[in-house]
Every structure is written in structure tokens, then in C-alpha cells.
Amino acid sequence: MNARAQDFIDVGALEDVPLRGSRILRSPAGDVALFKAADGHVFALRDECPHKKGPLSQGIVHGRSVTCPLHNWVIDLASGAAQGADEGCAQAVALKVENGRIFVDARALAPAHG
């Protein structure tokens, strides 16, 4: 239990993230975007498109992908990889769901150490 509390941080309840939608998590290390696909699965990515850093959290969620709001790259929510002809990868953030709460990898929220 203890190990978990250190590695993963409770960031909210499953219902806090709307279906086919997203929420942002602010952190010293930069924004993390949480997504919920139509089937209820939750994913976390750094909120930066591999193309020109567009905020992926603001895109349209379809299937298990999100379309970036700036230039329409389609990003896979699970891996962060750009789909189709585009190349690049948004950084995926580890996450787990327990008892209806979402836990995010603490390292993704901590400021980067030199």
C-alpha cells in the first residue's frame, strides 16, 4: 500500500473525466492530459502534440484516439504515437484505476531534477 502511495498519486474520480472528453492536470513538470474514451477507458499523455506542442487535451476524442486541435494530427491515446502518415510520439504517462479513482505516475508530476 505504501509503495503505491509513493509511486502513484490520486488525481480524481473516474467521473471527473467526461466520456469522450478530457481533463487537464497541472504540474510543475507541465500539463498532463487525462482522456476517457467512449468505452470508459482512461489514458494519460503529456499535454503536448509531437507536431507543434498543441494541447491534445483540447481535441476531439474518438475511438481510442484524439485529434489535435491545432493541425489535426491523430494521436493514439494508449501509446501517444501519431497515426497515419504523421510521425512522432506524445509522451504516455502511466496510470491506474482503483476503486473508481485515477492514480497517475508520481514521476510525471514532479519537476524534472537536473
Binding site: 498519486i9 490520486d10 488525481v11 471527473d16 492514480f103
Partner: peptide
């Protein structure tokens, strides 16, 4: 409102 308010991590004590 959820569109405009970021989520806040629950502090370590509360997560236990």
C-alpha cells in the same frame, strides 16, 4: 465547469 477547471492531485495522506 469541468472544461475550465484543471484536476487537482490529492495529497499523499489523502491517497492512502
Amino acid at each position: 465547469a469541468h472544461e475550465f477547471v484543471p484536476l487537482k492531485p490529492v495529497l499523499a495522506e489523502a491517497a492512502e
